[in-house]
């Protein structure tokens, strides 16, 4: 939660500096960010490769636990896809790409803005941030009216860290492990799914 605040703070400071042209054009147009992005993706990869706990969890729990992240992926893509078909400015692939952040706004916004365009990157940043905030605000309500998997579904990739405490509170401790597993799978999937989707569109 604390790091989310910092991330948004850095973004807003950068935004204001750019808005009021406080950064020399030449420095701002350097392609340094692209290399920082590759470094970040590389580090994310190291995190995935060195941490195969998610696989161990499947072995320990029933294989059916895999259905949780699968249903979140399918449900999110259907929902985001339907909405994007109603919006004239957003293509289906663009809508699916924004949805495929699953709440992981820092990584998805940067990947989308570099691989597709800054405008869609901003949509991804706001959209995925909203997903995290809605989970934090409504986990309890969702658990009560839609069942105990609903807050985990809403949390998406964030259910392994930033929204885990609120999900555990809303659903009970026995759901924490499912929440962590589902969030891990979705977090790992974001850097795979996004470049794949954007290469189609």
């Amino acid at each position: 939660m604390k790091s989310s605040v910092f991330i948004i703070l850095f973004f807003i400071i950068g935004f204001l500096l750019g808005r009021f042209s406080l950064i020399p054009e030449r420095i701002a147009r350097l392609q340094i960010e692209l290399w920082i992005l590759y470094a970040l993706i590389f580090f994310v990869g190291i995190g995935i490769g060195s941490n195969m706990d998610a696989l161990k969890l499947v072995k320990r729990m029933h294989v059916k636990i895999v259905l949780v992240p699968v249903s979140i992926i399918v449900g999110t893509l259907i929902g985001a896809g339907l909405v994007s078909m109603l919006l004239s400015d957003i293509s289906l692939i663009q809508g699916l790409a924004v949805g495929s952040g699953f709440g992981y706004y820092s990584l998805s916004s940067v990947i989308i803005s570099k691989l597709h365009g800054e405008t869609l990157g901003l949509v991804a940043l706001i959209s995925n941030l909203i997903r995290e905030v809605i989970t934090l605000l409504f986990a309890g309500v969702f658990a009560r009216y839609f069942g105990k998997l609903a807050p985990i579904a809403c949390g998406g990739a964030t259910s392994m860290d930033s929204t885990l405490p609120i999900i555990t509170k809303a659903c009970g401790k026995e759901y924490a492990i499912i929440s962590v597993f589902s969030g891990m799978v979705l977090t790992f999937l974001v850097p795979f799914l996004l470049p794949l989707l954007l290469s189609i569109g």
Binding site: V74, G75, G79, A80, I130
Partner: peptide, 21 residues
């Protein structure tokens, strides 16, 4: 647009989570 897409994604995933639950 961002709000609508996240609403769609959240609604879709919660809809599937109900039968799965």
């Amino acid at each position: 647009y961002a709000l609508l897409i996240s609403a769609g994604g959240i609604a879709g995933s919660i809809c599937l989570s109900i039968p799965l639950y």
